[in-house]
Design a protein around this nucleic acid. Structure first.
Length: 417
DNA sequence: AAACGCAGCAACCGCCCGTAC
DNA sequence: GGTACGGGCGGTTGCTGCGTT
């Protein structure tokens, strides 16, 4: 059944907004708010516009504190990191960048970042061809699945060099897939994400491509925790952003406002990425497994306590909270796995499917979530989970594990409800 | 100087989801 | 439980300005 249009298209004005229209809309909303009904709003103020159009105009342009253009390197990195994690969910990405709108970020991605990425990819490809044999040898010696200790590398490299993105574990997939011998095709999210992973997320011009090709597979770097004065782990942007390069928003006095509140959202046992839930799984498969699902949503205060409020002010606390809750639990739903797995093929090759919670590759192998991500496959309780994580990452402290609720804890992939 | 092509961005479109009835 | 409706979102379109030929 079709839907009735939200407005009479014949009688509404379309196209660019005039200053007069802007002024009308802005002054009305500032005085009266939206009244909870965008459809009725234009009639109230005598605008011949569709309600949806008014909403967009307000959200993307007239709303206070909107920033346009001038994206920083840090913002680039955050956008790319989140793109890897969650794909083109621009509204969630926008929630991480104060003053940015989803539309702005979407446009920026489509018109600039993607091209920037392509430019780097060409360089990478040339270098990869030169160093391909050497790299394979190093991967072989470094141990492959599980035994690869670089899978929980940290925010900063041991030598103090920036490691914008933590390294990803090298999985025991065929080292060179047929597709990888060709120029990648960037016609879908998955391909772009694969490239992002391959590049290690380094978009900064001060990162030369040599560095990029090396540290994605060869460096074994210690983990650094960035803690605040109260031994809390600050905002997850540190995972993608060296502390000394963080912009003012994420550093110094503002850092305090970004701290995860006690008993709030916590990334469990995440050595390098203390990930506030909203940052989801910015980084490594370890973190993808852990931070994505280990969420004590009971303690998320949608009304805006602590980090949630500070990060999402103006976004509607409950909205973001709900988004995050959704992400925290989705993996319990097999039907969602396929959708959510889109773009994660980089973990196990291009051809794969999910059968009974196991990922089956085109190579006839089957691994569980936990195995694939280097995590305990099943945690039936918080103790089990912690034990498993201790085994895997003994050096990584558990910060404020929010195990107030076993149900949410069990949303770890493969865990029982 | 004119024509053309391209990049950037604002706005629109259509679908999905949550909610009220 | 089914339907209608509004809000929200991601994808796409089309306009504008700038650079190149």
């Amino acid at each position: 059944m079709g839907r009735a249009p939200c407005c009479d298209k014949a009688n509404v004005k379309r196209g660019p907004w005039s200053p007069e229209e802007d002024a009308k809309l802005k002054s009305y909303i500032e005085q009266h708010g939206t009244g909870g009904n965008w459809i009725a709003l234009p009639q109230k103020i005598g605008l011949k516009r569709c309600g949806k159009s008014c909403r967009l105009r307000w959200l993307n342009y007239l709303r206070p504190n909107i920033k346009h253009g001038g994206f920083s390197e840090e913002e680039d990195n955050i956008i790319c990191s989140l793109y890897i994690s969650i794909g083109s969910r621009w509204s969630i990405i926008a929630a991480q960048l104060p003053g940015r709108t989803d539309n702005d970020i979407k446009n920026y991605w489509n018109t600039r970042l993607k091209k920037k990425l392509l430019g780097r990819q060409r360089k990478e490809h040339q270098l990869a061809r030169k160093s391909g044999l050497v790299k394979q040898d190093i991967i072989k010696r470094s141990g492959g699945v599980g035994g690869n200790s670089n899978s929980h590398s940290g925010i900063l490299a041991a030598d103090g060099q920036n490691s914008y993105w933590p390294e990803l574990p090298v999985l025991a997939v065929p080292t060179v897939l047929p597709q990888q011998q060709q120029q990648p095709c960037f016609n879908d999210h998955a391909s772009i994400r694969k490239l992002l992973i391959k590049l290690g997320g380094r978009f900064s011009s001060n990162h030369d491509t040599n560095q990029a090709t090396q540290d994605s597979s060869t460096d074994i770097q210690p983990t650094y925790q960035v803690l605040d004065d109260n031994n809390n782990i600050p905002y997850a942007a540190t995972a993608v952003t060296p502390t000394h390069q963080m912009d003012e928003h994420y550093s110094g006095k503002n850092m305090q406002s970004l701290l995860v509140p006690r008993h709030g959202i916590h990334a469990l046992n995440s050595p390098s990425a203390p990930v506030a839930l909203s940052n989801i799984d910015v980084i490594s498969p370890h973190q993808f497994a852990q931070t994505h699902y280990m969420v004590n949503t009971d303690n998320i205060d949608g009304a805006g306590n602590g980090i949630m409020h500070n990060m999402f002010q103006g976004q509607g606390g409950n909205y973001v909270t709900d988004q995050l809750k959704e992400m925290a639990v989705y993996n319990n739903n097999n039907t969602n796995n396929q959708q959510r797995f889109d773009g994660m093929e980089f973990l196990y090759g291009d051809e794969m499917m999910i059968m009974n919670n196991r990922i089956v590759s085109s190579y006839g192998e089957s691994i569980g979530w936990g195995e694939m991500l280097g995590c305990p496959p099943v945690a039936s309780s918080s103790d089990d989970y912690n034990a498993g994580m201790d085994r895997l990452m003994p050096a990584a402290p558990v910060q404020e594990c929010g195990f107030a609720n076993d149900q949410l804890m069990s949303s770890y992939p493969g865990a029982p409800l």
